[in-house]
Amino acid sequence: MNALLQYAVQGLAAGSFYALAALGLAIIFGVLGVVNFAHGAFYMLGAVTAAVLLDTLNLTLWWSLLVVPVLMFAFGVVVERLFVQWLLRLDPLYNFLLTFGLTLVLVELVKQKYGVSGLPYTPPEALQGRVELAGVVLPRYQLFVFLFSVAICVLVWLVMTRTRVGMIVRASTEKPELARALGINVGRWVTPVFGFGVAIAGLAGVLSAPFRAITADMGNNFAIILFAVVVIGGLGSIVGAVVAGFLVGLVEAFGQAYAPTFAQVLIFVLMALVILVRPAGLFGRKEATA
């Protein structure tokens, strides 16, 4: 029981990274129709930026959680204005080429500047050590990552369902033609939505900094699993992305515990099963509500 709870928390912590990053991916896909293959690179940039801010300006994790998403938002806006906007009218294949190419460029630039061994990162004192909950010893940082990302997901959900902005974004995601017919300027929301998606990926990167190796390649493997998450959740479904994110985290943790050799394979087995049974994903298009 004790061990099960521990694995569950580890799974949810690992799932937090997937959930946050997949959330950004889903929103971008929903509004722009762009499958953003550069999402892993944006996640990596978030972590690298946090490490650089700590090293040069001595900005701790708390500050990075605020500052890095803002920087990444700005970066996302620049990328959208410079590149992505020109491709919206073209075949999706061009989006793939662009965002994949962008990944290669960003990864190589970081390698040139910071090498491949990775950057050091020290988390704040308050997040080090462990707490005991119901007889189970849990690392503080894992709990923090889980609670923090749940909070962000809830916040995004509230914005999506309770505010005018959220309604416009949802309308643009689900029925762009109808939204346009009702006089909503869908195009105006494209740039900030892309920026927001990038900012959340960056935020997931910041959260990973104390916990994982900060290297130029850290986003590569992550991005592959991320796409499994999005497919499981249903492309473009925001709730689906988050639920699938945590689900995949749990599958990974229990896989590591009981079938280590298959830990990563299990995720893709799950993906294959979902595609077989529900081709649109657990919360795919038709069922998408939020």
Partner: peptide
């Protein structure tokens, strides 16, 4: 463990 891999938490607990 898989290679490369970024999550070893459960392997270590195990």
């Amino acid at each position: 463990t898989p290679f490369p891999n970024d999550n070893f938490a459960t392997f270590l607990t195990k």
